[in-house]
Design a protein around this nucleic acid. Structure first.
Lengths: 213, 213
DNA sequence: CCTACCGATCGGTAGG
DNA sequence: CCTACCGATCGGTAGG
């Protein structure tokens, strides 16, 4: 009896928390993590300010929880899609295009959550800044590993400067995210394909595997 | 007598306005144009809030005046430096490196004023957004003209896709501004040089003119 | 999860 | 340029 009752409360609490964070991620992708205010979020979700506040304890904790929620989505939409292809040049291509696709598809209404918030917090010390930079460098690490693997597999030229190539490919993606026009997304795909083709040991390596359908 | 007195007031007013805008540009480059608050600016400059307010009439007017001030500085530091070299491949190189240099030199304490504020206002409708986008596209227009001129002069290959090349070169710069590490600035210079060398009809075109000293 | 607060700060105004 | 305000909103707290 008491078990069932408290389970019900816990479940409702978790559902509210989840709804708050989903909304928080959307708002932040449009207006940044400091544009996020507890009062506005509470009004949007039609709960009291202090009711919402009780879930997090401080605005900073809300911001950190919002970042973690965005990371989970980014991981599923970009990293998992990229890594679903076996190591090699095509994995690198897949990783970059998954990143572009996720932004173009507006998984977050403001485009890329991390493009917005990393720029916003680039010069503000604190835990929000540190957490964002840590995730950014973790993702760059995954990209670097994919490029290094492709090099060691002989699919990218042995004299490839791995960090330089990662810089250039990432630059094309982030530029498209920042411009956010259809033309820019196309230009990024063209640039990435041509840069990878130039680094590849064989031109067919970037081709889609022929699927029978 | 009255002339001298009112001239003195006007001059003092202009000096105050100038000091306010210089400070506003610095603060915005660090914390964005919405992080700019009239109260804080007044406290920094040790004048009253309403005294400062009287110079602009609204926060939006202050933001627009701040953008115009930043544009003047950007024009002097980047555009004028780039265009000081005659049309051709080297002018394109000069334009891109002047842009990198200005950010690396921290002309604004937060790096590039426009990188920060364009991202901040990318999804907020209004005059601030419109003004920022207008300046961004004007600068892109100048870059495009420089590339087109270099192509027509025969210094870049006739089959150069001008918009694509502008996209790629700008991407390298904005990526470096966003990362803002010494390594990233170096990687951007390497990427720009190599991309321009590949588009050039002759490798010497990017060389510095030999100066006797 | 709520009502009812707190001090601080926001953009802006009145009147000099 | 000033003092002295305004209503709205901020993050956060007390006490349920």
């Amino acid at each position: 009896m008491t078990d069932r009752e408290s389970d019900g409360r816990v479940a409702r609490g978790a559902a509210t928390r989840k709804a708050v964070l989903r909304r928080a991620v959307d708002v932040s992708s449009l207006e940044g993590l400091s544009g996020l205010t507890i009062g506005r979020l509470a009004a949007d979700l039609e709960i009291s300010k202090s009711g919402l506040f009780a879930h997090f304890g401080s605005k900073e904790e809300l911001q950190l929880a919002t970042i973690d929620t965005a990371v989970e989505i980014f991981r599923a939409e970009v990293l998992d899609v990229g890594l679903s292809v076996p190591p090699g040049a095509r994995r690198v291509w897949q990783l970059m295009t998954a990143w572009l696709d996720y932004a173009e598809r507006r998984v977050f209404p403001g485009g890329c959550f991390f493009a917005k918030t990393s720029s916003e917090y680039s010069d503000r010390p604190g835990r929000v800044h540190d957490t964002l930079m840590q995730y950014r460098s973790a993702f760059r690490g995954e990209t670097t590993r994919a490029v290094r693997d492709a090099t060691q597999l002989g699919e990218l030229r042995a004299d490839t400067d791995v960090d330089q190539l990662v810089f250039e490919l990432s630059a094309f993606v982030t530029a498209a995210l920042s411009l956010a026009t259809p033309a820019a997304f196309d230009q990024a795909r063209i640039a990435i394909h041509s840069r990878l083709a130039r680094a590849a040991t064989s031109p067919e390596l970037l081709q889609e595997k022929a699927v029978s359908r």
